[in-house]
């Protein structure tokens, strides 16, 4: 019994030493009388620590994250337990409200599901519809322009995704990309000076980024090289056009005159490069 307790304690001490970086031989050097009994146990312990990890399936991990997401949602919507009333015993208006709510939830779910949809996907038209609805529900000009910049950025992402998936980028999507950015900056004359500078500089930055992205297509021997080069060149033209209005002081009006900013910006809008 005492012998076993001695081995128990010595084994634990040796395991700590091995875990700390010593070899089994080094750890046992201090306990020569126990080496024969402990060496095989230390050897097995070392081999246990070297067992490989199981393959983690992405599906399993995603399922877990999905359960956690549902759990979070349920917790955040936790409410007292409803009274047990038979559904069909409720008044007519309650049933109508329930139907509207269910339809709303279905619609909301579809809208959410469509957020990542790409051209050709079943839900892509829902995504475009949602964008339009969101735009028309936005009353502020500045916010509308911001939305258009977001939409333009999305069109580029969709064109790239489509090109990667099918090998072809749809020129119609690239047209929309350019048009959304153009319409965004055309709102500039209606904004106050700092906001219009900010808007145009954001649009110019996005346009430069779009030009670089399209340039990558054309430099890799893409089958649509000529078509995409047209859009890339247009991005270059538009970027240059936008930057014309970003130079400080260019638009400043003399203090003793009627502000000239608005007309200048309007004239600038008319100069937007087009096909």
């Amino acid at each position: 019994m005492e012998r076993e307790q001695h081995l128990v304690d010595t084994l634990d001490a040796c395991l700590d030493q091995v875990r700390g970086g010593q070899t089994i031989d080094d750890a046992l050097a201090e306990h020569p009388a126990d080496a024969e009994a402990l060496r095989p146990l230390l050897d097995i312990a070392t081999r246990l620590e070297c067992l490989p990890d199981p393959n983690v399936s992405l599906a399993g991990l995603m399922k877990t994250l999905g359960r956690l997401g549902s759990q979070t949602l349920t917790a955040s919507r936790a409410e007292p337990a409803p009274r047990k009333v038979r559904w069909f015993s409720r008044p007519v208006w309650t049933r109508a409200a329930a139907i509207v709510l269910v339809m709303f939830l279905i619609g909301w779910g579809t809208v959410n599901a469509s957020a990542g949809a790409m051209p050709g996907d079943f839900l892509y038209p829902v995504k475009l519809f949602t964008e339009r609805a969101r735009f028309f529900l936005t009353l502020n000009t500045e916010d509308q322009a911001e939305l258009r910049i977001v939409f333009s950025s999305r069109r580029l992402r969709e064109a790239v995704a489509q090109q990667q998936r099918t090998g072809q980028a749809d020129p119609q999507i690239l047209d929309q990309m350019l048009e959304e950015a153009r319409l965004a900056v055309l709102a500039a004359p209606q904004l106050s000076e700092p906001n219009r500078q900010l808007l145009v500089s954001r649009a110019a930055y996005l346009t430069d980024y779009q030009r670089d992205a399209l340039d990558r297509f054309t430099s890799t021997g893409h089958p649509q090289e000529q078509v995409i080069a047209r859009y890339r060149d247009m991005c270059w033209e538009r970027g240059r056009w936008m930057r014309q209005m970003l130079a400080p002081g260019e638009d400043a009006a003399p203090s003793n005159q009627q502000p000239q900013a608005q007309p200048n910006w309007r004239r600038w809008c008319d100069d937007c490069p087009m096909w």
């Binding site: 076993e4 081995l7 128990v8 084994l11 634990d12 395991l15 146990l41 097995i44 312990a45 246990l48």
Partner: peptide
């Protein structure tokens, strides 16, 4: 735990 560890490794042996 130390006793259980010793016995588990001995059993594996």
């Amino acid at each position: 735990i130390r006793v259980l560890q010793f016995r588990a490794l001995s059993a594996l042996r």
